[in-house]
Write a protein that binds this DNA or RNA. Structure first.
Lengths: 232, 232
DNA sequence: AGCGTTTGATAGTTTTACTATTAAAAAAAA
DNA sequence: TTTTTTTTAATAGTAAAACTATCAAACGCT
Protein backbone atom coordinates (compact mmCIF):
# COMPACT_ATOMS: atom_id res chain seq x y z
CA UNK A 1 0.00 0.00 0.00
CA UNK A 2 1.64 3.19 -1.15
CA UNK A 3 1.53 6.53 0.59
CA UNK A 4 -0.50 7.92 -2.32
CA UNK A 5 -3.10 5.27 -1.78
CA UNK A 6 -3.48 6.17 1.89
CA UNK A 7 -3.88 9.82 1.03
CA UNK A 8 -6.56 9.01 -1.51
CA UNK A 9 -8.49 7.02 1.06
CA UNK A 10 -8.20 9.79 3.58
CA UNK A 11 -9.61 12.21 1.05
CA UNK A 12 -12.38 9.79 0.22
CA UNK A 13 -13.40 9.65 3.85
CA UNK A 14 -13.25 13.40 4.19
CA UNK A 15 -15.37 13.86 1.11
CA UNK A 16 -18.40 12.37 2.80
CA UNK A 17 -20.80 15.24 3.20
CA UNK A 18 -21.11 16.30 6.88
CA UNK A 19 -24.85 16.71 6.34
CA UNK A 20 -24.96 12.93 6.22
CA UNK A 21 -24.52 12.70 9.97
CA UNK A 22 -24.97 14.59 13.23
CA UNK A 23 -21.57 13.52 14.52
CA UNK A 24 -18.95 11.88 12.30
CA UNK A 25 -19.14 8.13 12.93
CA UNK A 26 -15.60 7.70 11.61
CA UNK A 27 -14.32 9.82 14.48
CA UNK A 28 -15.01 7.47 17.37
CA UNK A 29 -15.07 3.85 18.31
CA UNK A 30 -18.79 3.92 19.02
CA UNK A 31 -19.41 5.57 15.66
CA UNK A 32 -17.52 2.87 13.83
CA UNK A 33 -19.40 0.16 15.66
CA UNK A 34 -22.66 1.85 14.63
CA UNK A 35 -21.57 1.62 10.99
CA UNK A 36 -20.27 -1.92 10.96
CA UNK A 37 -23.13 -3.36 13.00
CA UNK A 38 -25.87 -1.48 11.18
CA UNK A 39 -24.64 -2.91 7.88
CA UNK A 40 -24.76 -6.40 9.34
CA UNK A 41 -28.21 -5.94 10.82
CA UNK A 42 -29.78 -4.30 7.77
CA UNK A 43 -28.28 -7.01 5.60
CA UNK A 44 -29.73 -9.71 7.84
CA UNK A 45 -33.18 -8.37 8.66
CA UNK A 46 -33.87 -5.75 6.01
CA UNK A 47 -34.26 -2.03 6.51
CA UNK A 48 -37.92 -2.15 7.60
CA UNK A 49 -37.29 -4.50 10.51
CA UNK A 50 -34.08 -2.74 11.49
CA UNK A 51 -34.40 -0.39 14.49
CA UNK A 52 -32.04 1.71 16.58
CA UNK A 53 -33.17 -0.33 19.59
CA UNK A 54 -31.89 -3.54 17.98
CA UNK A 55 -28.73 -1.79 16.86
CA UNK A 56 -28.08 -0.44 20.35
CA UNK A 57 -28.29 -3.97 21.75
CA UNK A 58 -25.95 -5.28 19.04
CA UNK A 59 -23.31 -2.67 19.85
CA UNK A 60 -23.89 -2.81 23.59
CA UNK A 61 -24.96 0.77 23.80
CA UNK A 62 -28.22 2.72 23.94
CA UNK A 63 -30.66 4.25 21.49
CA UNK A 64 -29.89 7.71 22.81
CA UNK A 65 -26.21 7.29 21.97
CA UNK A 66 -26.98 6.33 18.37
CA UNK A 67 -29.24 9.34 17.99
CA UNK A 68 -26.22 11.53 18.66
CA UNK A 69 -24.71 10.28 15.41
CA UNK A 70 -27.74 10.01 13.17
CA UNK A 71 -31.03 11.85 13.19
CA UNK A 72 -32.93 8.66 12.33
CA UNK A 73 -32.52 5.32 10.65
CA UNK A 74 -33.28 6.72 7.20
CA UNK A 75 -30.37 9.11 7.52
CA UNK A 76 -28.16 6.25 8.60
CA UNK A 77 -29.17 4.32 5.48
CA UNK A 78 -28.39 7.32 3.30
CA UNK A 79 -24.98 7.51 4.96
CA UNK A 80 -24.21 3.84 4.29
CA UNK A 81 -25.31 4.02 0.67
CA UNK A 82 -23.44 7.28 0.15
CA UNK A 83 -20.33 5.64 1.54
CA UNK A 84 -20.67 2.88 -1.07
CA UNK A 85 -21.12 5.20 -4.04
CA UNK A 86 -18.26 7.41 -2.91
CA UNK A 87 -16.11 4.34 -2.57
CA UNK A 88 -17.06 3.15 -6.06
CA UNK A 89 -16.57 6.59 -7.57
CA UNK A 90 -13.14 6.79 -5.98
CA UNK A 91 -12.19 3.30 -7.10
CA UNK A 92 -13.29 3.86 -10.70
CA UNK A 93 -11.53 7.20 -10.92
CA UNK A 94 -8.40 5.61 -9.52
CA UNK A 95 -8.48 2.61 -11.86
CA UNK A 96 -9.17 4.60 -15.02
CA UNK A 97 -6.79 7.39 -14.16
CA UNK A 98 -4.05 6.62 -16.66
CA UNK A 99 -6.26 5.06 -19.33
CA UNK A 100 -6.65 7.13 -22.48
CA UNK A 101 -9.21 5.21 -24.50
CA UNK A 102 -12.76 6.10 -23.31
CA UNK A 103 -14.12 2.70 -24.34
CA UNK A 104 -11.59 1.07 -22.07
CA UNK A 105 -12.50 3.47 -19.26
CA UNK A 106 -16.14 2.56 -19.64
CA UNK A 107 -15.32 -1.12 -19.64
CA UNK A 108 -13.34 -0.76 -16.42
CA UNK A 109 -16.12 1.26 -14.80
CA UNK A 110 -18.67 -1.40 -15.67
CA UNK A 111 -16.40 -4.08 -14.30
CA UNK A 112 -16.29 -2.37 -10.91
CA UNK A 113 -19.98 -1.62 -10.90
CA UNK A 114 -20.93 -5.21 -11.60
CA UNK A 115 -18.21 -6.82 -9.54
CA UNK A 116 -19.26 -8.82 -6.51
CA UNK A 117 -17.39 -7.76 -3.43
CA UNK A 118 -16.08 -10.61 -1.33
CA UNK A 119 -16.43 -11.17 2.37
CA UNK A 120 -12.80 -10.42 3.03
CA UNK A 121 -12.86 -7.08 1.24
CA UNK A 122 -12.73 -4.82 4.20
CA UNK A 123 -12.29 -1.10 4.19
CA UNK A 124 -11.81 0.49 7.60
CA UNK A 125 -13.74 -2.32 9.26
CA UNK A 126 -16.71 -2.27 6.89
CA UNK A 127 -17.74 -5.58 5.36
CA UNK A 128 -18.03 -4.61 1.73
CA UNK A 129 -19.96 -7.68 0.68
CA UNK A 130 -22.65 -7.05 3.28
CA UNK A 131 -22.75 -3.39 2.30
CA UNK A 132 -23.14 -4.36 -1.34
CA UNK A 133 -26.12 -6.55 -0.48
CA UNK A 134 -27.59 -3.63 1.43
CA UNK A 135 -27.12 -1.45 -1.66
CA UNK A 136 -28.84 -4.06 -3.84
CA UNK A 137 -31.85 -4.30 -1.60
CA UNK A 138 -32.14 -0.89 0.02
CA UNK A 139 -30.44 1.81 -2.02
CA UNK A 140 -33.51 2.98 -3.90
CA UNK A 141 -35.25 3.68 -0.60
CA UNK A 142 -32.81 6.49 0.10
CA UNK A 143 -34.40 8.73 -2.49
CA UNK A 144 -37.88 7.29 -3.04
CA UNK A 145 -39.39 9.53 -0.39
CA UNK A 146 -41.30 12.80 -0.17
CA UNK A 147 -38.14 14.30 1.29
CA UNK A 148 -35.94 13.80 -1.79
CA UNK A 149 -35.81 17.42 -2.80
CA UNK A 150 -34.66 18.63 0.60
CA UNK A 151 -32.22 15.75 1.02
CA UNK A 152 -30.86 16.43 -2.43
CA UNK A 153 -30.42 20.12 -1.62
CA UNK A 154 -28.31 19.08 1.35
CA UNK A 155 -26.10 17.15 -1.06
CA UNK A 156 -26.86 13.74 0.36
CA UNK A 157 -26.82 12.08 -3.05
CA UNK A 158 -23.62 13.71 -4.23
CA UNK A 159 -21.65 10.47 -4.45
CA UNK A 160 -24.18 8.75 -6.65
CA UNK A 161 -24.54 11.74 -8.92
CA UNK A 162 -20.79 12.15 -9.16
CA UNK A 163 -20.38 8.54 -10.22
CA UNK A 164 -23.10 8.94 -12.80
CA UNK A 165 -21.53 12.08 -14.23
CA UNK A 166 -18.08 10.49 -14.32
CA UNK A 167 -19.30 7.56 -16.40
CA UNK A 168 -21.56 9.72 -18.55
CA UNK A 169 -18.39 11.59 -19.52
CA UNK A 170 -16.87 8.41 -20.92
CA UNK A 171 -20.08 7.81 -22.85
CA UNK A 172 -19.93 11.32 -24.29
CA UNK A 173 -16.34 10.78 -25.35
CA UNK A 174 -17.25 7.57 -27.14
CA UNK A 175 -20.24 9.04 -28.91
CA UNK A 176 -20.67 12.81 -28.53
CA UNK A 177 -23.93 12.73 -30.47
CA UNK A 178 -25.72 10.38 -28.11
CA UNK A 179 -28.49 12.37 -26.49
CA UNK A 180 -29.04 10.56 -23.21
CA UNK A 181 -25.68 9.85 -21.54
CA UNK A 182 -26.87 10.51 -17.99
CA UNK A 183 -30.16 8.67 -18.40
CA UNK A 184 -28.33 5.72 -19.89
CA UNK A 185 -25.79 5.61 -17.09
CA UNK A 186 -28.31 6.00 -14.28
CA UNK A 187 -30.41 3.28 -15.91
CA UNK A 188 -27.31 1.12 -16.04
CA UNK A 189 -26.37 1.78 -12.41
CA UNK A 190 -29.88 0.93 -11.30
CA UNK A 191 -29.98 -2.16 -13.50
CA UNK A 192 -26.67 -3.27 -12.03
CA UNK A 193 -28.26 -4.00 -8.68
CA UNK A 194 -31.81 -4.64 -9.88
CA UNK A 195 -30.75 -7.50 -12.10
CA UNK A 196 -28.89 -9.17 -9.25
CA UNK A 197 -31.98 -8.85 -7.11
CA UNK A 198 -34.24 -10.18 -9.86
CA UNK A 199 -31.93 -13.09 -10.59
CA UNK A 200 -32.12 -14.11 -6.96
CA UNK A 201 -35.74 -13.37 -6.14
CA UNK A 202 -37.83 -12.75 -9.27
CA UNK A 203 -36.05 -14.80 -11.94
CA UNK A 204 -38.86 -14.34 -14.46
CA UNK A 205 -37.76 -10.72 -14.77
CA UNK A 206 -34.23 -11.64 -15.77
CA UNK A 207 -32.30 -13.95 -18.05
CA UNK A 208 -29.48 -14.09 -15.59
CA UNK A 209 -29.83 -17.39 -13.84
CA UNK A 210 -28.76 -18.03 -10.32
CA UNK A 211 -26.85 -21.17 -11.26
CA UNK A 212 -23.94 -19.54 -13.04
CA UNK A 213 -21.96 -16.53 -11.92
CA UNK A 214 -24.65 -13.88 -11.56
CA UNK A 215 -22.21 -10.98 -11.47
CA UNK A 216 -20.37 -12.15 -14.58
CA UNK A 217 -23.60 -12.54 -16.54
CA UNK A 218 -24.77 -9.20 -15.27
CA UNK A 219 -21.56 -7.56 -16.48
CA UNK A 220 -22.11 -9.06 -19.92
CA UNK A 221 -25.68 -7.82 -20.02
CA UNK A 222 -24.76 -4.30 -18.92
CA UNK A 223 -21.82 -4.13 -21.31
CA UNK A 224 -23.92 -5.27 -24.26
CA UNK A 225 -26.71 -2.90 -23.40
CA UNK A 226 -24.59 0.20 -22.90
CA UNK A 227 -22.22 -0.28 -25.85
CA UNK A 228 -24.99 -1.18 -28.26
CA UNK A 229 -27.08 1.78 -27.20
CA UNK A 230 -24.30 4.29 -27.81
CA UNK A 231 -23.08 2.70 -31.04
CA UNK A 232 -23.59 4.85 -34.12
CA UNK B 1 -67.97 0.83 -25.28
CA UNK B 2 -68.50 -2.58 -26.80
CA UNK B 3 -69.66 -5.67 -24.96
CA UNK B 4 -66.28 -7.27 -25.61
CA UNK B 5 -64.60 -4.41 -23.88
CA UNK B 6 -66.76 -4.77 -20.81
CA UNK B 7 -66.05 -8.47 -20.67
CA UNK B 8 -62.34 -7.80 -20.95
CA UNK B 9 -62.51 -5.38 -18.05
CA UNK B 10 -64.49 -7.84 -15.98
CA UNK B 11 -61.84 -10.44 -16.65
CA UNK B 12 -59.12 -8.00 -15.81
CA UNK B 13 -60.69 -7.31 -12.45
CA UNK B 14 -61.20 -10.96 -11.77
CA UNK B 15 -57.62 -11.75 -12.68
CA UNK B 16 -56.35 -9.89 -9.64
CA UNK B 17 -54.94 -12.59 -7.42
CA UNK B 18 -57.14 -13.14 -4.33
CA UNK B 19 -53.97 -13.44 -2.27
CA UNK B 20 -53.64 -9.71 -2.77
CA UNK B 21 -56.41 -9.02 -0.28
CA UNK B 22 -58.28 -10.46 2.69
CA UNK B 23 -61.63 -9.37 1.32
CA UNK B 24 -62.09 -8.17 -2.25
CA UNK B 25 -62.18 -4.37 -2.13
CA UNK B 26 -63.99 -4.28 -5.48
CA UNK B 27 -66.93 -6.09 -3.88
CA UNK B 28 -68.17 -3.34 -1.58
CA UNK B 29 -68.57 0.37 -1.30
CA UNK B 30 -66.20 0.57 1.67
CA UNK B 31 -63.64 -1.49 -0.23
CA UNK B 32 -63.74 0.87 -3.18
CA UNK B 33 -63.38 3.87 -0.93
CA UNK B 34 -60.32 2.23 0.61
CA UNK B 35 -58.77 1.93 -2.84
CA UNK B 36 -59.57 5.38 -4.17
CA UNK B 37 -58.66 7.21 -0.97
CA UNK B 38 -55.48 5.24 -0.31
CA UNK B 39 -54.21 6.18 -3.76
CA UNK B 40 -54.90 9.83 -3.03
CA UNK B 41 -53.26 9.72 0.39
CA UNK B 42 -50.16 7.79 -0.67
CA UNK B 43 -49.76 10.12 -3.63
CA UNK B 44 -50.00 13.15 -1.36
CA UNK B 45 -47.98 12.09 1.68
CA UNK B 46 -45.86 9.18 0.48
CA UNK B 47 -46.05 5.59 1.60
CA UNK B 48 -43.98 6.02 4.77
CA UNK B 49 -46.24 8.69 6.23
CA UNK B 50 -49.40 6.93 5.10
CA UNK B 51 -51.21 5.00 7.86
CA UNK B 52 -54.46 3.07 8.18
CA UNK B 53 -55.47 5.52 10.89
CA UNK B 54 -55.24 8.44 8.45
CA UNK B 55 -56.99 6.42 5.77
CA UNK B 56 -59.81 5.50 8.14
CA UNK B 57 -60.41 9.17 8.87
CA UNK B 58 -60.35 10.01 5.15
CA UNK B 59 -63.00 7.41 4.38
CA UNK B 60 -64.99 8.06 7.55
CA UNK B 61 -64.49 4.59 8.86
CA UNK B 62 -62.22 2.81 11.32
CA UNK B 63 -58.84 1.12 11.28
CA UNK B 64 -60.46 -2.19 12.18
CA UNK B 65 -62.66 -2.04 9.10
CA UNK B 66 -59.68 -1.51 6.81
CA UNK B 67 -57.86 -4.42 8.38
CA UNK B 68 -60.73 -6.61 7.23
CA UNK B 69 -59.69 -5.90 3.64
CA UNK B 70 -55.91 -5.77 3.87
CA UNK B 71 -53.51 -7.43 6.24
CA UNK B 72 -51.35 -4.32 6.44
CA UNK B 73 -50.39 -1.23 4.49
CA UNK B 74 -47.65 -3.03 2.58
CA UNK B 75 -50.19 -5.51 1.23
CA UNK B 76 -52.44 -2.64 0.23
CA UNK B 77 -49.55 -1.08 -1.69
CA UNK B 78 -48.85 -4.37 -3.44
CA UNK B 79 -52.53 -4.50 -4.39
CA UNK B 80 -52.52 -0.99 -5.87
CA UNK B 81 -49.34 -1.58 -7.85
CA UNK B 82 -50.57 -4.97 -9.04
CA UNK B 83 -53.75 -3.31 -10.22
CA UNK B 84 -51.67 -0.89 -12.30
CA UNK B 85 -49.51 -3.55 -13.95
CA UNK B 86 -52.50 -5.74 -14.67
CA UNK B 87 -54.20 -2.75 -16.21
CA UNK B 88 -51.16 -1.96 -18.37
CA UNK B 89 -50.72 -5.58 -19.36
CA UNK B 90 -54.36 -5.75 -20.38
CA UNK B 91 -54.20 -2.48 -22.29
CA UNK B 92 -51.05 -3.46 -24.18
CA UNK B 93 -52.38 -6.88 -25.07
CA UNK B 94 -55.58 -5.27 -26.26
CA UNK B 95 -53.88 -2.59 -28.35
CA UNK B 96 -51.37 -4.92 -30.01
CA UNK B 97 -53.87 -7.70 -30.56
CA UNK B 98 -54.29 -7.40 -34.31
CA UNK B 99 -50.80 -6.07 -35.07
CA UNK B 100 -48.54 -8.50 -36.91
CA UNK B 101 -45.21 -6.73 -37.00
CA UNK B 102 -43.32 -7.29 -33.69
CA UNK B 103 -41.47 -3.99 -34.02
CA UNK B 104 -44.78 -2.22 -34.17
CA UNK B 105 -46.04 -4.19 -31.18
CA UNK B 106 -43.00 -3.17 -29.20
CA UNK B 107 -43.45 0.45 -30.20
CA UNK B 108 -47.05 0.41 -29.03
CA UNK B 109 -46.10 -1.26 -25.76
CA UNK B 110 -43.48 1.40 -25.09
CA UNK B 111 -45.98 4.10 -25.89
CA UNK B 112 -48.34 2.86 -23.21
CA UNK B 113 -45.57 2.28 -20.69
CA UNK B 114 -44.23 5.79 -21.05
CA UNK B 115 -47.58 7.53 -21.48
CA UNK B 116 -48.65 9.94 -18.79
CA UNK B 117 -52.12 9.20 -17.57
CA UNK B 118 -54.33 12.22 -17.21
CA UNK B 119 -56.45 13.29 -14.28
CA UNK B 120 -59.65 12.45 -16.03
CA UNK B 121 -58.60 8.91 -16.90
CA UNK B 122 -60.74 7.04 -14.46
CA UNK B 123 -61.23 3.32 -14.31
CA UNK B 124 -63.87 2.13 -11.86
CA UNK B 125 -63.37 5.21 -9.73
CA UNK B 126 -59.59 5.02 -9.59
CA UNK B 127 -57.66 8.15 -10.46
CA UNK B 128 -55.14 6.76 -12.87
CA UNK B 129 -52.83 9.76 -12.80
CA UNK B 130 -52.51 9.58 -9.02
CA UNK B 131 -51.97 5.84 -9.23
CA UNK B 132 -49.26 6.37 -11.82
CA UNK B 133 -47.48 8.80 -9.52
CA UNK B 134 -47.72 6.21 -6.76
CA UNK B 135 -46.18 3.65 -9.12
CA UNK B 136 -43.34 6.03 -9.96
CA UNK B 137 -42.49 6.69 -6.35
CA UNK B 138 -43.50 3.53 -4.51
CA UNK B 139 -43.58 0.51 -6.81
CA UNK B 140 -40.08 -0.75 -6.06
CA UNK B 141 -40.94 -0.94 -2.37
CA UNK B 142 -43.39 -3.74 -3.07
CA UNK B 143 -40.61 -6.23 -3.71
CA UNK B 144 -37.53 -4.71 -2.04
CA UNK B 145 -38.22 -6.52 1.22
CA UNK B 146 -37.07 -9.63 3.03
CA UNK B 147 -40.49 -11.08 2.27
CA UNK B 148 -40.13 -11.09 -1.54
CA UNK B 149 -39.74 -14.81 -1.93
CA UNK B 150 -42.87 -15.63 0.04
CA UNK B 151 -44.86 -12.84 -1.60
CA UNK B 152 -43.69 -14.02 -4.98
CA UNK B 153 -44.72 -17.59 -4.20
CA UNK B 154 -48.20 -16.28 -3.48
CA UNK B 155 -48.21 -14.78 -6.96
CA UNK B 156 -48.42 -11.17 -5.83
CA UNK B 157 -46.13 -9.97 -8.63
CA UNK B 158 -47.87 -11.91 -11.38
CA UNK B 159 -49.07 -8.81 -13.23
CA UNK B 160 -45.64 -7.25 -13.46
CA UNK B 161 -44.02 -10.49 -14.55
CA UNK B 162 -46.72 -11.11 -17.11
CA UNK B 163 -46.19 -7.67 -18.63
CA UNK B 164 -42.45 -8.26 -18.74
CA UNK B 165 -42.87 -11.64 -20.44
CA UNK B 166 -45.35 -10.23 -22.96
CA UNK B 167 -42.93 -7.55 -24.08
CA UNK B 168 -39.92 -9.85 -23.94
CA UNK B 169 -41.78 -11.98 -26.50
CA UNK B 170 -41.87 -9.07 -28.93
CA UNK B 171 -38.15 -8.59 -28.36
CA UNK B 172 -37.49 -12.24 -29.10
CA UNK B 173 -39.51 -12.02 -32.29
CA UNK B 174 -37.50 -9.02 -33.44
CA UNK B 175 -34.15 -10.58 -32.62
CA UNK B 176 -34.28 -14.25 -31.60
CA UNK B 177 -30.55 -14.28 -30.93
CA UNK B 178 -30.60 -11.54 -28.32
CA UNK B 179 -29.64 -13.17 -25.05
CA UNK B 180 -31.26 -10.93 -22.48
CA UNK B 181 -34.86 -10.15 -23.50
CA UNK B 182 -36.29 -10.29 -19.97
CA UNK B 183 -33.45 -8.39 -18.40
CA UNK B 184 -33.73 -5.73 -21.06
CA UNK B 185 -37.47 -5.38 -20.64
CA UNK B 186 -37.40 -5.29 -16.84
CA UNK B 187 -34.63 -2.70 -17.06
CA UNK B 188 -36.83 -0.74 -19.44
CA UNK B 189 -39.92 -0.98 -17.24
CA UNK B 190 -37.92 0.17 -14.25
CA UNK B 191 -36.29 2.95 -16.21
CA UNK B 192 -39.70 4.08 -17.41
CA UNK B 193 -40.62 5.32 -13.97
CA UNK B 194 -37.13 5.96 -12.63
CA UNK B 195 -36.37 8.48 -15.33
CA UNK B 196 -39.54 10.40 -14.64
CA UNK B 197 -38.60 10.50 -10.97
CA UNK B 198 -35.04 11.58 -11.74
CA UNK B 199 -36.18 14.25 -14.17
CA UNK B 200 -38.35 15.74 -11.44
CA UNK B 201 -36.16 15.27 -8.38
CA UNK B 202 -32.58 14.36 -9.29
CA UNK B 203 -32.10 15.97 -12.70
CA UNK B 204 -28.35 15.33 -12.71
CA UNK B 205 -29.15 11.66 -13.20
CA UNK B 206 -31.13 12.26 -16.34
CA UNK B 207 -31.00 14.16 -19.63
CA UNK B 208 -34.73 14.48 -19.63
CA UNK B 209 -35.45 18.00 -18.54
CA UNK B 210 -38.51 19.02 -16.67
CA UNK B 211 -39.22 21.92 -19.00
CA UNK B 212 -40.35 19.94 -22.02
CA UNK B 213 -42.72 17.01 -22.07
CA UNK B 214 -41.04 14.56 -19.72
CA UNK B 215 -43.07 11.59 -20.86
CA UNK B 216 -42.40 12.25 -24.54
CA UNK B 217 -38.66 12.54 -23.96
CA UNK B 218 -38.75 9.45 -21.81
CA UNK B 219 -40.46 7.52 -24.60
CA UNK B 220 -37.73 8.57 -27.00
CA UNK B 221 -35.02 7.52 -24.59
CA UNK B 222 -36.62 4.13 -23.93
CA UNK B 223 -37.29 3.51 -27.60
CA UNK B 224 -33.73 4.38 -28.57
CA UNK B 225 -32.16 2.20 -25.96
CA UNK B 226 -34.33 -0.84 -26.45
CA UNK B 227 -34.20 -0.88 -30.27
CA UNK B 228 -30.49 -0.18 -30.38
CA UNK B 229 -29.71 -2.88 -27.85
CA UNK B 230 -31.58 -5.55 -29.79
CA UNK B 231 -30.32 -4.46 -33.21
CA UNK B 232 -28.05 -6.97 -34.93
C1' DA C 1 -89.65 -10.93 10.87
C1' DG C 2 -85.60 -13.36 11.32
C1' DC C 3 -80.84 -14.45 9.75
C1' DG C 4 -76.26 -13.79 8.57
C1' DT C 5 -72.94 -10.60 7.16
C1' DT C 6 -70.77 -6.15 7.24
C1' DT C 7 -69.51 -2.15 9.54
C1' DG C 8 -68.75 1.13 13.44
C1' DA C 9 -67.40 2.17 18.04
C1' DT C 10 -64.50 1.38 21.57
C1' DA C 11 -60.67 -0.24 23.88
C1' DG C 12 -56.47 -2.21 24.56
C1' DT C 13 -51.38 -4.12 23.47
C1' DT C 14 -46.93 -3.99 21.73
C1' DT C 15 -43.44 -1.81 19.23
C1' DT C 16 -41.25 2.09 17.15
C1' DA C 17 -39.32 6.42 17.03
C1' DC C 18 -38.07 9.58 19.38
C1' DT C 19 -36.70 13.30 23.64
C1' DA C 20 -35.00 14.55 28.18
C1' DT C 21 -32.25 14.11 32.26
C1' DT C 22 -28.57 12.82 34.96
C1' DA C 23 -24.55 10.43 36.32
C1' DA C 24 -20.38 8.11 35.14
C1' DA C 25 -16.42 7.62 32.34
C1' DA C 26 -13.05 9.13 29.26
C1' DA C 27 -10.34 12.55 27.01
C1' DA C 28 -8.22 16.92 26.83
C1' DA C 29 -6.43 21.03 28.93
C1' DA C 30 -4.38 23.39 32.68
C1' DT D 1 -2.01 15.60 38.28
C1' DT D 2 -5.96 17.90 38.84
C1' DT D 3 -9.63 20.26 36.52
C1' DT D 4 -12.64 20.90 32.85
C1' DT D 5 -14.99 19.47 28.94
C1' DT D 6 -16.81 16.11 26.10
C1' DT D 7 -18.73 11.65 25.36
C1' DT D 8 -21.34 7.84 26.69
C1' DA D 9 -24.54 4.96 29.54
C1' DA D 10 -28.60 4.40 32.18
C1' DT D 11 -33.06 5.43 32.88
C1' DA D 12 -37.40 7.18 32.01
C1' DG D 13 -40.91 8.81 29.49
C1' DT D 14 -44.10 10.27 25.29
C1' DA D 15 -46.61 10.03 21.00
C1' DA D 16 -47.76 7.60 17.32
C1' DA D 17 -48.01 3.28 14.57
C1' DA D 18 -49.45 -1.21 13.89
C1' DC D 19 -52.06 -4.12 15.11
C1' DT D 20 -56.09 -7.36 17.81
C1' DA D 21 -60.45 -8.15 20.15
C1' DT D 22 -65.15 -7.45 21.34
C1' DC D 23 -69.76 -6.16 20.79
C1' DA D 24 -73.64 -3.77 19.11
C1' DA D 25 -75.89 -1.52 15.32
C1' DA D 26 -77.09 -1.52 10.55
C1' DC D 27 -77.98 -3.67 6.37
C1' DG D 28 -79.32 -7.05 2.85
C1' DC D 29 -81.76 -11.09 1.97
C1' DT D 30 -85.37 -14.75 2.07
Amino acid sequence: MSVDYIIMIAQLQLQLNPSLYLRDPQSSDLGQRIITESIKLIDEMGFEAFTFKKLSIAINSTEASIYRYFENKHRLLIYLIAWYWNYLDYKINYETHNIKEPKEKLRIALKFIAKELSDDDMFSGVSESALQRVVIQESDKTYLTKNVDLDNKEGLFRGYKSLCVTIAEYVKQINPEFEYPHSLVSTCLEAAHQQVFFAKHLPTLSDINGKEDIHQQNLEFLTTFIFKTISK
